[in-house]
Amino acid sequence: MVTENNNTELFLAGLDAQETTDIARYEYPTGKLPIRYLGLPLMHRKLRISEYEPLLQKLANTFRSWAVKMLSYAGRLQLISTVINGTVNFWMTTFLLPKGCLKKIESMCSRFL
């Protein structure tokens, strides 16, 4: 019994024509890049600086939500070192962040601190 799952797409890479034909028998819809997976944009090319905007926007929203709280210097430093660095490290496991992006992140951290 085949069930329809709208959340499933198949992405093919590095297959020859016979392998592609064999896989097509399963009738899964073929996905196209770019997509977002676990919050990261996945593409077949290097990201442009403008495509790092979701990361910068997420960090800016996080800083905005923290700004209204009465946090000590040590509390702010702890949030930066855990939450912000964790988010940036997650992106850096997949992408080389450009210097301009890193400078913007450092600037946001400095302003918050």
Results as ranks from 00 to 15, higher is better:
residue 2 V to T: 12
residue 2 V to M: 10
residue 2 V to F: 11
residue 3 T to S: 13
residue 4 E to D: 14
residue 8 T to L: 15
residue 8 T to A: 15
residue 8 T to G: 06
residue 9 E to W: 07
residue 9 E to R: 15
residue 10 L to A: 09
residue 12 L to S: 01
residue 13 A to R: 15
residue 13 A to G: 09
residue 15 L to T: 07
residue 17 A to M: 12
residue 21 T to L: 14
residue 22 D to E: 14
residue 24 A to K: 13
residue 25 R to L: 12
residue 25 R to H: 13
residue 26 Y to K: 13
residue 28 Y to T: 03
residue 28 Y to Q: 04
residue 29 P to W: 01
residue 29 P to T: 11
residue 31 G to C: 09
residue 33 L to A: 09
residue 34 P to M: 07
residue 35 I to P: 04
residue 37 Y to N: 15
residue 38 L to A: 07
residue 39 G to I: 06
residue 39 G to A: 06
residue 41 P to Y: 02
residue 41 P to H: 02
residue 44 H to M: 12
residue 44 H to Y: 07
residue 45 R to A: 07
residue 47 L to G: 04
residue 48 R to P: 02
residue 49 I to T: 12
residue 50 S to A: 11
residue 50 S to W: 10
residue 51 E to Q: 10
residue 52 Y to L: 04
residue 53 E to A: 15
residue 53 E to D: 12
residue 53 E to F: 09
residue 53 E to I: 05
residue 57 Q to N: 14
residue 57 Q to S: 12
residue 58 K to W: 02
residue 58 K to Y: 06
residue 61 N to P: 05
residue 61 N to T: 11
residue 65 S to D: 10
residue 67 A to H: 06
residue 68 V to N: 07
residue 70 M to G: 11
residue 70 M to P: 09
residue 75 G to S: 05
residue 75 G to F: 00
residue 75 G to W: 00
residue 76 R to W: 07
residue 79 L to D: 01
residue 80 I to W: 03
residue 81 S to A: 01
residue 85 N to A: 05
residue 87 T to G: 02
residue 90 F to R: 06
residue 93 T to P: 02
residue 94 T to F: 13
residue 96 L to I: 11
residue 96 L to C: 10
residue 96 L to D: 14
residue 97 L to W: 04
residue 100 G to C: 08
residue 101 C to I: 15
residue 101 C to T: 15
residue 101 C to E: 05
residue 103 K to A: 15
residue 103 K to T: 13
residue 105 I to E: 09
residue 106 E to W: 08
residue 109 C to G: 02
residue 111 R to L: 13
